[in-house]
Amino acid sequence: MRRRLGGWALVAGAALGVLAPALAAAVDAAWGREVLPIAPHHTDVVALNRATWQLGEPVAEVYGLPARAPIRVIRPDPARLVVPEEDRTLVLLAVDRQAGENPLQARTLGVAARYAMLAGAALSAAGAAVRWLGRPRSVS
């Protein structure tokens, strides 16, 4: 019985170790999108910023406070995406932290998968140890 449990743990651990990163990579590939998160300005402020914006000035700042660099986000809400008329290459994601918004980042998935992989490896090792300790021994 103990050997059987050890065997299950060995297989389950190996499966977790392989599947978790694969699943994370698949989710990222299917739904991940690189965006520049912004803390959005009020609509009145955006209207004013757009009216006073001049060529050469930064564009993201017209719409909100931008993050330092683009971030890969899983399934960003399409309604919150902003592609500014002033620069069509930019994809901004309005995230209202004051309203409790915190979109899932691809990095979070990756780190969770890494921890799951480690947990899987530990489970496999424990299962292998249980199997080995419970092996039938020859009576001499």
């Binding site: 803390a39 909100g64 406070l65 993050a67 932290r97 004051q98 980042q105 979070t108 780190v111």
Partner: peptide, 16 residues
């Protein structure tokens, strides 16, 4: 509109 940004293991933390 005031924001702060901090790098953490799990994500980029942004507050406002």
């Amino acid at each position: 509109n005031i924001g702060f940004e901090s790098e953490a293991e799990f994500e980029t933390i942004i507050g406002t």
